[in-house]
Design a binder for these strands. Structure first.
Lengths: 128, 128
DNA sequence: CGGTATCCTCATAGATACTG
DNA sequence: CAGTATCTATGAGGATACCG
């Protein structure tokens, strides 16, 4: 793994924290996954992502854009049109994300069974 | 990428959400990274992870254990000794995580420059 | 040593309303 | 259509104290 013993204060962790904050928030990965399939309009994203508020969609897109992972293209027509796409670097992160998705698919059942077992044992202990 | 257009309500997203919640919280990945280097005692983890509270260390370890990613071994000596290690499945997630860490190392500078540029442009626009 | 229990705070995100 | 502004609330996480 080559991870230093002391993490949490050094530069390595800051890098890691940055990416985890990026990848860990509620909507970023979902947006990147969709944009991995190609450029999308604002309204397309809104429809594609079930349950996202307009506020969070905009906020998340802005921070992805700020990080250079997504590019925003405005077409000043009437009605206005705004398209979002992954940048080349965004595509490489999107690839990492898709690897994580496939991990989750492979181990979904295992985790589910683990949780059931753990909860059953915890309950058995609570009421002996 | 092979990601469906509609995410957020279907099974695919639940799997993904599960992993993201797992990987996205503040301490799980740090703990998994350290345990990737081998088994560690509770107190070793506490010292290794700068800034973690006892509460969060315990909570995070419990949920990792619940998911079958970490195994907890109690040695009932005096003083008591508790060791934590990755399970085989935990090791595979740890590998994904290390891939993400290396991505973050490779693109740390790019993101930093992107943010600086974005913020500079935002400020330039705010005060023209 | 390896935890629980309790309280508290402060970001994150949802709902709603309005706009160029 | 593609946002911004404002308000609110919920829950993750920190601080502290105590326990087997």
């Amino acid at each position: 793994m080559d991870v230093p013993d002391q993490v949490g204060a050094g530069a390595v962790t800051c890098q890691l924290r940055d990416v985890l904050d990026r990848v860990g928030d509620k909507w970023s990965v979902l947006i990147m996954a969709i944009l991995g399939g190609g450029s999308r309009r604002y309204s397309e994203l809104r429809r594609s992502i079930d349950g996202i508020s307009q506020r969070m969609l905009t906020l998340t897109l802005r921070s992805l854009e700020r990080d250079g992972l997504v590019i925003r293209t405005v077409t000043p027509s009437t009605p206005p049109r705004v398209d979002y796409a992954l940048t080349p670097v965004g595509q490489t992160l999107s690839a990492e994300v898709s690897s994580l998705i496939s991990w989750s698919e492979r181990h979904r059942e295992y985790i589910g069974r683990s949780r059931d077992r753990y909860d059953a044992e915890a309950e058995a202990e609570a009421r002996p």
